[in-house]
Design a protein around this nucleic acid. Structure first.
Lengths: 341, 341
DNA sequence: ATTAGCACTCGATCATGGAGAGTGCTAAAC
DNA sequence: GTTTAGCACTCTCCATGATCGAGTGCTAAT
């Protein structure tokens, strides 16, 4: 569909544009990438590329700017080549990652900060959705007259608190019985599975020991009701340095896109359903607010099951190669952390 | 120092300036606040006020703008009058506060969001510093080979997790003994006090039961080592709507001021040492980055002891009256929550 | 098929000038 | 003595227009 020469020109234009913002002209291309062709020829090729939808002209007699489609083509060739093992970057990254090893519970916060500091774009990460985590242990602690603290430990080592209001009559010893029951019967299953199973099993028993059981059912329903992961977003100040966000409206647009963590959470949850890396370029983004931004995300896994996602949000004029490297490495690192320990 | 008439003019100028940005001229003052004086007279008075440092002129033949000193004077009269019981606002506020009643552990996050949505400035809040909280219960749960989860409950009902790396030999039953010891001897004291006491007491015992005790000392040191409160900051998107942040540099400045949560944390910790409300106007701010912003903060208390702070950050051209009302009410609300339950 | 040359277009930058807002000063009015 | 009207002056803001430079598209020559 695209002959070799046009392809090189397209990639050259994109490379130029990533290096410095603003439309890129035919002469600039010949200077940076000496094909042995004159600017006039490049102009003709660029004109063809525009017709095919890979480039666009902000106005007559400006240079060309890659379209979302152009970037898509570029990113796809990057993936094919997958020579995106920029070694210096990977070692710097691993050095930084080493530092955050310690505690899986803080790794997601750290990861978002790291993603942004390395890429100079927005770093996002979401801790695993409890619903898909496998429970390893649960503790129920009555710490106030009518309040119960639920402490859940997942197989990945994540600790999650939850406060539930309970009948003041309910004693700690009865809570212990409920906790023991859950621990004995259900650890190793995902919270989603447990919720169904526990409620089903207990409901069958209801005929026998009515009062405690019915309370237990209610508590379990609360315990295992959805408790989404946390979203961590960093790097606003990084991104404001970029020339891409030089005017107020761009900034407002960006903020509108990332201000509501719930939206980002839902987005990443959705992405987490498919494994591996995904790249959304401009208008490809599922979110209207992000149609002028790009997003590079990857899921991380526990075993083979993807349980969460991390990524980078930046301008469509993004250094995709670098972003892909950073996101992929970080995701792998988290996957390792979740599996090894 | 300031005769009654000059004072009214100053307050009028400030009021005008708060209502709409930009320098305010003598004619505008006479229109909005008919003193029965002509613009020329007002001009003379404003000239005097400038000489005294309450007003400033961006350039010859522009109107006047209040200086930090001018705002300081204004705020002080507000406090004297303390007629800042804007009733509609207070009821709206209480209605919103009612909603977040539920769980003290999420109230600080909610509070920052609420502060910003009501004031349209940046809302900040910090959860209590664990060091000054009184411990009501502690649980030590070994959940991995060499990892210990510490769950601390404070008298205010706050739950705090911490992960500590331990010797894999240390058994759950020994951990239980340590927890029991702490719970029996030390609840009701602040974490700070406990840290000292436990380590002192245990160290004395060291002669007897060496191995367990020395491990216990190490663990307690980790448990009770400083674990600062969390900082919650909201409202960036609110504040970008304001005309005060219409240019890029202002925004960058603002972001530089609030991007590092650790700095805000230290600032609010410092503020928490004195009770009550504090207002920092422009250059009065302890932080260099905030010398063009204002901050209205109040501590909240547990009993009589201030244990944390919440507040609002906005432009020096801030609606102080409203901000004071919002911050004071919210702080009171949190204080109530901490005391009643 | 490629290239050199040239006219043309458009944005960015800068100087110009008039309008408007607001001041400071002075002299008159109260 | 205080207040006010009047007026000249200053400064910002905005629209206008000229110039410059980058880059294109087209045509004719290679």
């Amino acid at each position: 569909m695209l002959d070799e020469r046009s392809k090189s020109v397209l990639l050259a234009v994109i490379q130029c544009h990533i290096n410095s913002p603003g439309p890129v002209g035919s002469r600039a291309v010949t200077k940076k990438y000496p094909f042995g062709l004159s600017p006039a020829t490049i102009r003709n090729i660029m004109s063809d590329l525009e017709e095919m939808g890979f480039l666009a002209q902000p106005h007559t007699s400006a240079g060309r700017v890659p379209t979302d489609l152009g970037y898509r083509y570029y990113v796809d060739t990057l993936k094919d080549d997958n020579h995106f093992t920029n070694n210096e970057l990977v070692t710097e990254l691993n050095k930084k990652l080493e530092v955050i090893r310690q505690d899986i519970n803080t790794v997601f916060d750290e990861a978002s900060r790291m993603l942004s500091s390395l890429s100079h774009y927005i770093g996002i990460s979401v801790s695993p959705n409890a619903a898909t985590s496998t429970l390893s242990k649960i503790e129920l602690i009555k710490y106030r007259e009518n309040q119960l603290a639920v402490i859940m430990f997942t197989d990945e080592g994540i600790i999650k608190n939850k406060v539930i209001t309970i009948d003041p009559e309910l004693s700690q010893s009865n809570l212990n019985r409920i906790a023991e029951y859950i621990n004995a019967q259900h650890t190793g299953h995902t919270v989603e599975e447990i919720k169904e199973k526990v409620i089903r099993d207990l409901s069958q028993d209801r005929l026998r020991c009515d009062d405690l059981i019915s309370q237990a059912v209610r508590i379990c329903r609360d315990i295992f009701s959805s408790s989404p992961g946390n979203v961590y977003i960093s790097g606003l100040s990084e991104v404001l340095q970029l020339p891409d966000f030089c005017d107020i409206d761009k900034i407002k647009e960006l903020l509108r896109a990332i201000e509501d963590k719930h939206i980002i959470l839902r987005l990443l949850d959705q992405i987490s359903e498919a494994a591996g890396m995904q790249i959304f370029i401009g208008s490809e983004n599922p979110l209207e607010e992000m149609k002028n931004l790009s997003m590079v995300v990857s899921t991380y896994r526990e075993g083979n099951r993807p349980i969460g996602a991390i990524g980078i949000i930046g301008p469509t004029r993004m250094n995709y190669q670098q972003a892909i490297t950073i996101v992929a490495s970080t995701a792998n690192y988290i996957t390792d952390m979740l599996s090894n320990k």
